[in-house]
Amino acid sequence: MNDQTGRVTRPFRFGVVAPLTSDLPTWRDRVRRIAGSGYSTLLVPDVPTWQPALGPMLATAAALADLRVGSWVYAAALRQPWSTAWEAHSLSVLTEGRFEMGIGAGRPGIEVELGLPAVSPAERRTRMRETVAALREFDGPELHTPVVMAVSGPKSQALALEVADAVTFVLPADDDRAETTRRVRDFAGGRDMELAQHVAAVGDGVAPFMAPPDLDTAALRAADSLVVLPSDPGAAAEEIQRRREEIGFSYFVIGADFADTLAPAVAKLAGQ
């Protein structure tokens, strides 16, 4: 038992957000290398028009390597519940249970940037709820597609406690360790959930699709922000262990550009 959070201590697992930012053969090689380095899950962001559609990319990745795949994360502002749930269920079936559905409200204004009608926060949460409900209907009693929900305020946190299997917190970059710890500890409910940590930066590098490219990594370190990890694998492993012990995070998601850098830490901690 974790004395700080009152949660059961879960084994570590590690995911990698790997968008297609190169030629296809290079991306395929990257997928295979990630799978061979101890990472449990390959994730793809929901960024229409910037890369191939999320569903085909994940199906391709699952065929290339024996690892889990997932959305990080479906943006409810861009997606209708029934079709999103059908895609998620289909990926679960085609990967023989190796798919996990990450879903969140979506970045503010993303739908307007793409020429779509504005979607209110309340409607985004409604879509998230309806997507999970439709997914459970598609899955039926023989299949349970895990749902990781990205949350920020109390309303989305309450929804995650009701319908999700795991949660990742959308943390302001300027939150320090104490503020992040408070946010997570205030996430109270009647059941234990896996807590995921979205790591946007490693050392001085910022992961594409996980944070703005102009993110000030020096300021993050000065503020003791938890959206950054050290680039030294030994120091990163110590910090990851500290975050589980003090806060309860056990699932860490990083950018593909840092997968090789942190591979020794992953090899040491995965499954422990």
Score class of each variant (00 low, 15 high):
residue 5 T to C: 13
residue 41 T to V: 12
residue 217 T to F: 05
residue 176 D to R: 12
residue 98 R to E: 06
residue 253 V to H: 11
residue 263 A to S: 15
residue 186 D to C: 08
residue 6 G to W: 03
residue 166 A to C: 01
residue 146 P to T: 01
residue 222 A to Y: 11
residue 252 F to W: 01
residue 116 L to Y: 07
residue 68 R to P: 03
residue 37 S to P: 11
residue 62 A to F: 02
residue 148 V to M: 10
residue 112 V to I: 06
residue 271 G to D: 06
residue 267 A to N: 03
residue 224 D to Y: 10
residue 208 P to E: 02
residue 121 P to C: 12
residue 165 D to T: 02
residue 269 L to G: 07
residue 58 L to G: 05
residue 161 L to Y: 09
residue 23 D to Q: 03
residue 271 G to C: 07
residue 227 V to I: 15
residue 56 P to V: 08
residue 46 D to F: 07
residue 96 E to T: 04
residue 60 T to G: 00
residue 78 L to N: 12
residue 137 E to K: 05
residue 258 F to H: 15
residue 45 P to G: 13
residue 95 T to P: 11
residue 77 A to M: 08
residue 2 N to K: 07
residue 151 V to P: 13
residue 190 G to R: 14
residue 127 R to F: 11
residue 136 R to I: 02
residue 182 R to F: 03
residue 93 V to D: 05
residue 198 H to P: 06
residue 144 H to R: 10
residue 77 A to P: 04
residue 108 P to I: 08
residue 121 P to S: 08
residue 25 P to H: 04
residue 55 G to K: 03
residue 7 R to E: 14
residue 205 G to W: 12
residue 263 A to T: 05
residue 238 E to T: 15
residue 60 T to A: 10
residue 222 A to L: 07
residue 59 A to N: 06
residue 186 D to H: 09
residue 93 V to S: 04
residue 226 L to T: 06
residue 60 T to Q: 02
residue 258 F to K: 08
residue 207 A to V: 06
residue 128 M to A: 11
residue 268 K to D: 04
residue 202 V to R: 04
residue 94 L to R: 10
residue 261 T to R: 14
residue 227 V to W: 04
residue 184 V to M: 10
residue 126 T to R: 15
residue 49 T to F: 14
residue 138 F to I: 07
residue 131 T to F: 07
residue 183 R to N: 12
residue 153 G to E: 12
residue 156 S to D: 14
residue 195 L to T: 02
residue 249 F to I: 09
residue 204 D to S: 14
residue 38 G to L: 02
residue 99 F to Q: 09
residue 206 V to Q: 03
residue 271 G to Q: 04
residue 110 I to L: 14
residue 78 L to F: 07
residue 89 H to Y: 15
residue 5 T to D: 09
residue 243 R to P: 00
residue 221 R to L: 01
residue 239 E to N: 00
residue 48 P to M: 13
residue 29 D to L: 09
residue 84 T to H: 05
residue 269 L to H: 05
residue 149 M to E: 01
residue 28 R to D: 15
residue 13 R to N: 12
residue 157 Q to E: 06
residue 148 V to Q: 01
residue 43 L to E: 05
residue 68 R to T: 06
residue 174 D to W: 08
residue 141 P to R: 13
residue 272 Q to W: 05
residue 29 D to S: 14
residue 143 L to K: 05
residue 272 Q to S: 15
residue 157 Q to M: 09
residue 241 Q to W: 02
residue 104 G to D: 13
residue 227 V to R: 08
residue 137 E to H: 04
residue 234 G to S: 09
residue 255 G to N: 06
residue 216 D to C: 04
